[in-house]
Amino acid sequence: MAALEKVRDEAPPKAPARGRRPSRPRGSVPAPGTTPGEKRLAASPSAWFVWSGMAAFLVLLLGIIVAVVVDSFGRSWFDTWLPAEWTAQWYAESWDRFDLTHVIGVTVGVALAVVVLSVLIGVPAAYLLARRSFPGKRLVNVLFLLPILMPPITYGIPLATVMYAFGLGRSVVAVILVNLVPSVPFVILTMTPFIEQINPAIESAARMCGAGMRQVFTRILAPLLVPGILAASILVLVRTVGMFELTFLVSGPQSDTLVVAIYRAMTSAGGGEARQLISAMAVMYTTTMLAMLVVALRFVNPTQLVAQVKEARDD
């Protein structure tokens, strides 16, 4: 057992060590909620391998993030470890150059519209799928599963073709509509297990108390579903802000979201844009996403949430 403890203490630096060291005083007594079996499994020699793999992943991850941040604040960074000068001017410059006021306005507007619409469309459908059986239910289930299982390009290209045919191409409306295609099924998949968790007898009880369908929804279901709706909304928000493929197919200069604007800048003909301008934009993008993720984690435990999503996908 002592040898195993040693292995545990020699975990790689950074986050893992921070997390593990406080648990040491408990010694060989398994921590509460941990069965001895789990501990042995983790403490086996292969644990070394796992921790170093994770360390490599973290180094790569942090390297990527820090490199972009450093780049966005640096000037004349070529053949050295760090840039020669530090500046914040890239931010101001990229803001003007790419008209980020407009781009971010579009991004936020599109994301909010997609969230609201997909919740309004998806939650009632999720309610029916969770609670009822009706003819064709399997078909409906498959219909809502397909956009999530298919590569976005597969339905995105025909959809974009239709959009252009209807004269919606390059408009904000088109961007909102294409983003709804994966978002509505996503809301349905996320909400179905949330609704299944609510005991149907609670709704029956409300009806026996004289509440009509609408009152059951507004007075009972809505308050109980708030955590689920929030979680689904935040995830849809993150997905929509990060959605590149679909948005790129239908957006134009006036309807580009931030992620598409960054891509266009990176691939602009002749590589004309300074790398630091793009880094600055990328940092702004990630900061926004990170803020949303932090908010999301306050409401939901990601592991649980995915567990629920997965159960919905299972059937």
Binding site: R20, P22, S23, T34, E38, F244, Y285, T286, M292
Partner: peptide, 28 residues
């Protein structure tokens, strides 16, 4: 899977790339 302090932080760090998106990952 084991419970230890900082597990939430660890999980959050592992989940972080979801916010990066492909474009920032590429730039990085």
């Amino acid at each position: 899977r084991r419970r230890f302090r900082g597990k939430r932080l660890m999980t959050s760090i592992l989940v972080l790339p979801i916010t990066l998106g492909t474009v920032l990952t590429a730039q990085g």
